[in-house]
């Protein structure tokens, strides 16, 4: 009979390859966007320009009325936002991995972010993402989803007032739960 002892001792998988493999599942890599979504964004920008005078403001208002890009979203660990922050923000991006030839989509950012809070990857009072949560479940604070200028959703801990503080439009909210 064969047993695991018949084989050489276990060896670790290449650390470098493991990190690269993990990264291939995280939204840090640019995601392909659905063409249809991209066209909607462009159409909004075009409409804003046609409106003339204060075109940039008009574009901003139109583009942030609803989520037009579901390829990824942001879960913020603290209620802090900068429209010029680039990819550096307190929290984590969520984005669906492409399944075969079909691009991934994030359909309900606020629920996904709530799951991350519940699993402990985001925790109250901690800025950024927690790598190794130690409890089985964590309390989920009240969350509010806003639409950023790029048409993607951003979910913050707090109430709808948070969105207007940042000049964003609130799209959904969720009460705290333990």
């Amino acid at each position: 009979m064969i047993s695991p002892e018949d084989f050489p001792p276990d060896r670790p998988f290449s650390v470098e390859k493991k990190r690269a493999l993990q990264a291939s599942f995280v939204g840090s890599a640019p995601q392909r966007r659905p063409r249809r979504r991209l066209r909607i964004t462009l159409a909004s920008a075009g409409t804003a320009i046609v409106l003339g005078g204060g075109g940039a403001i008009a574009y901003s208002a139109i583009a942030t009325n609803s989520v037009t890009d579901e390829s990824s979203a942001r879960c913020y660990s603290v209620a802090s936002y900068s429209s010029k922050g680039g990819d550096d923000f307190p929290g984590t991006s969520i984005s669906a991995v492409d399944a075969g030839d079909a691009p991934g989509r994030v359909t309900s950012a606020i629920d996904v972010c709530a799951s991350l809070w519940r699993a402990g990857f985001l925790q109250a009072g901690v800025t950024g993402q927690v790598r190794n949560p130690t409890q089985a479940t964590y309390p989920v604070p009240a969350l509010v989803g806003c639409v950023m200028a790029n048409g993607q959703a951003a979910v913050f801990p707090g109430t709808a007032a948070i969105c207007s503080q940042f000049g964003l439009v609130a799209i959904a909210s969720r009460p705290a739960s333990s």
Binding site: Q22, A23, F25, V26, G27, A73, C75, T92, I94, S95, A96, V97, G104, V106, T107, S108, A109, D111, V112, S115, L116, A119, F121, Q129
Partner: peptide
């Protein structure tokens, strides 16, 4: 897996 399937690939990593 549940969290990852909802869109958070960090969990699958």
């Amino acid at each position: 897996f549940q969290v990852a399937d909802e869109g958070a690939e960090t969990a699958f990593a």
